[in-house]
Design a protein around this nucleic acid. Structure first.
Lengths: 341, 341
DNA sequence: GGTTATCGCAAAACCGGTTCAGCAGTATCA
DNA sequence: TGATACTGCTGAACCGGTTTTGCGATAACC
């Protein structure tokens, strides 16, 4: 019933704990016959190292952490995090390193979690997501000296290594596509303004629209379906109705599509729609949504690799993942040329 | 830079580690003035207990685990898990107990994870989800003696305590609602047949339909949007078209709705739709989906409470949560009386 | 053949907590 | 006044690993 320890193995083999340790870790210090004998006994007893003892001894927790502080309600809908986590796992499971995952109520609670995890040596490092402008978490993590990899723009990551994709490039891709189809009046339903990448996108869209000579407008939102639909109605019912809409996440795009159809508008005939971040959600609806796609799981795996290096003491640089690509589906098309002034 | 230990506190206070331990844990053995002095020093030094040392000493990991082995692609869409996790966290965070969360490729990998976590004492217990008929994981967990709470039907949980809702009752609620509206030909797009609750629902639907004198049919599916849409098209284009459809999850319901509308059918005029498990997804679409709602986060919190008891050595019984209730939205209505034979 | 490496292992310290046995010193009581 | 109890702390063992030091025996070398 009781789990076997190295002491048990040592007794059976007639050696000391130390010898068993050497044998099991493949280190010099024991003869080959003895090593085999010890390994056989360990196998027979089903021995597994006690993680607490290992952690205490070598001073590392052999675990990483991830805290998210979005409300659970919107969190559940975001395919993003599950994909990210599964990508992280895919990389971490190679070394059997588990992930501590927690949802926090707000940023203060999130920071408290970091302090606790690090103070108690529960983790060797953390993934930092949803980077904000002037992010309060960054200086805390820097001060703690906790190995961290920021998943997001390097500008917001301070001295922390960042794993990121170029949102400005993606913005140009999206706008280029729509402008190429002939759209001259384009609006975007954006994510929360506190998030740095929202700001980056906004600037990139504005700059690119200027260059292309198209009218462009940003409407702030919060990633939720409700606000996505509300923003959509406001834009479609207001003056100078845009002929194309870009959404900062797939949830808002879906609810925006529904809202537009509820107004009696046809997509894409009357208005084109484009989602930023692709997921199965975009294929669920009709018409399926044209989207900016990237491999989020792969992104997570990269982040995990960088974090492992950082926790190992290396000071890693930023890692830029490939630009998102456009997945063309049925929700974007040339605008019908009615009152195209 | 180095984290302070109890030894550091002891030195400053001029006492031994043991005294410090008593003081910090609020146990008798030190005088009140000494205790206050020690607490003050600990506070000043920002001391936090090393979790590995605590775990090694008291033989408990102070962490629980959750493994999911659905493919990441469908996982991301399911609001269910995020809500469940956030509910679990809400309960666990009270004691500062973190959750180890992992996605596994298949059941074998999941079982291997349990063996590893338990063998290495990484967790004090686990939450078991997606219970199947003749679930291979149950006997393994029983044999390991690992504290476990099954989230699902007691019938599939063996000797493990289960936290569950009565799916049969919910099935009657759903069918009663539709029959009450006048529907006489109803089909259900079910989840994976290996899952026990799918089978329970199927039986309950069949029995209840028999009693109510309505035609009923189950079509197997896999929870994915693709299959949900395919099953919907098959049912709506086949002979004896049903006037109402029930979906075993919200993702399939949404894609089924889209599929029906793609066929030129109006919901709910031509066909009513009802989703099992409510989420923001159901409100995202048009018409919003009538759904069987339950408080999943609360469900998770209950499971966490039971697991903590189980890990504490108590042998707990099953815990039944309230039956799901029907949230009426726009997707169900009386059938138009055309050829209602 | 004596010195020096090298090998194979024992013994013990260490990581940072918890806990138990023991021991002075004071208080209680007969 | 001596036995008894209690208080407040010390010292040490313990949890289960890793790592360092040391020692006897054999092998290599000049």
């Amino acid at each position: 019933m009781k789990r076997p320890t190295m002491q048990d193995i040592a007794q059976r083999a007639g050696v000391t704990k130390g010898a068993v340790s050497f044998a099991l870790n493949g280190r010099p210090g024991v003869s080959e016959p003895t090593r085999r004998r010890i390994l056989a006994i360990a196998e027979e007893l089903g021995w597994q190292p006690n993680s607490a003892a290992v952690a205490l001894s070598d001073g590392r927790a052999n675990a990483f952490g991830l805290v998210v502080d979005r409300p659970a309600r919107t969190l559940g809908l975001e395919p993003y995090f599950m994909q990210l986590i599964s990508g992280i796992q895919a990389e971490l499971s190679a070394t059997g390193t588990p992930l501590l995952f927690t949802v926090a109520d707000d940023q203060l609670a999130e920071i408290a979690t970091y302090r606790s995890w690090w103070g108690r040596r529960r983790v060797d490092g953390v993934f930092l997501v949803d980077l904000r402008v002037d992010d309060a978490r960054v200086p805390v993590l820097e001060e703690l000296g906790m190995p961290t990899v920021a998943i997001g723009m390097p500008q917001a990551a301070g001295s922390l290594p960042a794993v990121w994709t170029d949102d400005a490039a993606a913005a140009r891709t999206a706008l280029g596509h729509l402008a190429g189809l002939g759209h001259r009046r384009i609006a975007r339903v954006a994510g929360p303004e506190q998030l740095l990448h929202t700001r980056i996108r906004t600037e990139a869209f504005a700059a690119c629209a200027w260059e292309l000579g198209v009218e462009y407008r940003t409407v702030a939102s919060d990633y939720s379906g409700e606000q996505g639909a509300a923003a959509t109605r406001e834009l479609l019912l207001g003056p100078r109705r845009p002929t194309a809409l870009v959404y900062d996440n797939d949830v808002m795009a879906v609810s925006g599509l529904t809202a537009a159809q509820g107004l009696g508008l046809r997509v894409p005939a009357d208005v084109s729609m484009l989602a930023w971040d692709d997921s199965a959600l975009c294929e669920l609806v009709h018409p399926p949504l044209t989207a900016l796609s990237r491999d989020i799981a792969e992104h997570g795996a990269h982040a995990a690799r960088v974090l492992r290096q950082a926790a190992g003491g290396a000071d890693c640089g930023d890692l830029r993942d490939p630009d998102p690509v456009l997945t063309l589906r049925g929700s974007t098309a040339a605008p019908v040329g009615e009152d195209q002034s």
